[in-house]
Simulated scan of single mutants.
Amino acid sequence: MHAQFVLFDGFDPLDVIAPYEVLHTAGIVSGGAVSAELVSAEGARPVPSSIEGLTLNATGRLDPYRADLVLVPGSAPSGDELEAAESSGYGQLTSATRALREQAPQSTLLSLLTHSMRQPGTTVAAVCGGSLLLAMTGLLSGRRATTHHLGMDLLGAAGVHVVSARVVDDGDLVTSAGVTSGLDLALHLVERELGPRIVHSVEILLAYERRGTVWRPRGSLPKVFGDPRPVR
């Protein structure tokens, strides 16, 4: 499995680094069955994160025809945006995400993400506000997904079937909630691809055990509370 982690100006670094280390470690444990790289829509370049002074280097260009997994991070909100999110309920629509959405008609990144979503055999994963980036450009309409708890209403307003879970597996779309949930998402993807023995070894090496239940559209329907929350 080859994974490409998408970087864009203003990305949240932990959304990238946490799952990247999980997949990198899985590659070591499995003898090379997993590989990962940092990419951008423009190709190799330094990409500034949402944390001042912290930059990661993309080593190549996002290529949906070469990647088995494309992971989309969110963008960490500023203090002012967090205050606005708490009062309005529209959390995680940060300045970086807004800028990308407004550039949608001419955005190379959004074009490549669209190709990724439509490419047979490619799984698209999103951490935290990455779900909102995809949803606000119409790519998740009718799908089941989650995001940071402050962005749930906005996700539902974009036509997504919102599931309040730490990780939501909707087949070729896998999403996770708040920032640290990227660890759980990546470990789930490793287990889905390589099985429990490999992922157990990764957990031991990283001294981390997964949290929460991965939600999937299977099994008996709950009789109370519904499944999932209806779209508003």
Rank of each mutant, 00 (worst) to 15 (best):
G142L: 08
V29E: 15
G129W: 09
F8G: 05
R192S: 15
S131T: 03
L150W: 09
P48Q: 08
V22E: 07
Q4W: 00
F8N: 02
H2A: 01
L150Y: 11
R144F: 07
L100V: 02
E52N: 13
E102M: 09
L54G: 02
E81S: 14
P217D: 13
P77D: 07
E191G: 05
G182V: 09
L23P: 05
A26K: 08
G151P: 11
M117K: 00
E83V: 14
R232Y: 04
M117D: 00
P105A: 11
A41V: 03
V231G: 02
G226N: 06
Y208D: 12
F8L: 04
S111M: 14
D9Q: 12
R229L: 15
G178L: 06
T123H: 04
G129C: 09
G195F: 10
Y208P: 12
P196Y: 06
Q103S: 15
A125F: 00
G74Q: 06
Q92V: 11
L7W: 12
L140G: 01
P64K: 03
M117F: 00
I204Y: 09
S116A: 15
R211Q: 14
V29L: 10
L100H: 05
F8E: 03
E203I: 07
H2G: 03
L194V: 06
V72H: 07
L100D: 04
E102P: 02
T114C: 02
G74L: 04
A165H: 13
G138W: 03
D172I: 00
G142R: 02
V231E: 12
S30W: 08
E193N: 12
P228T: 10
V231S: 14
T175C: 00
S30T: 10
L112R: 09
T123V: 15
T137P: 03
L185A: 03
E81R: 11
L93F: 14
D12P: 00
A33H: 13
P228N: 10
S181G: 00
V214D: 01
M117V: 00
C128L: 08
R210P: 02
A76F: 14
A126K: 00
K223E: 15
V224W: 12
G138T: 05
T97H: 10
V179Y: 04
G142D: 05
L133H: 07
V16L: 14
P222S: 06
L155A: 02
S30I: 11
E52K: 13
A126I: 00
M136T: 15
F8W: 02
A44L: 05
V224E: 13
E83R: 15
G74S: 11
V29Q: 14
G138A: 09
P13K: 13
L221C: 02
S131A: 14
V199Q: 13
V202M: 10
S88P: 04
S75W: 04
L183Y: 15
L56K: 03
G129E: 15
P77I: 09
D80S: 12
D153G: 04
V174P: 01
L14A: 11
L112C: 12
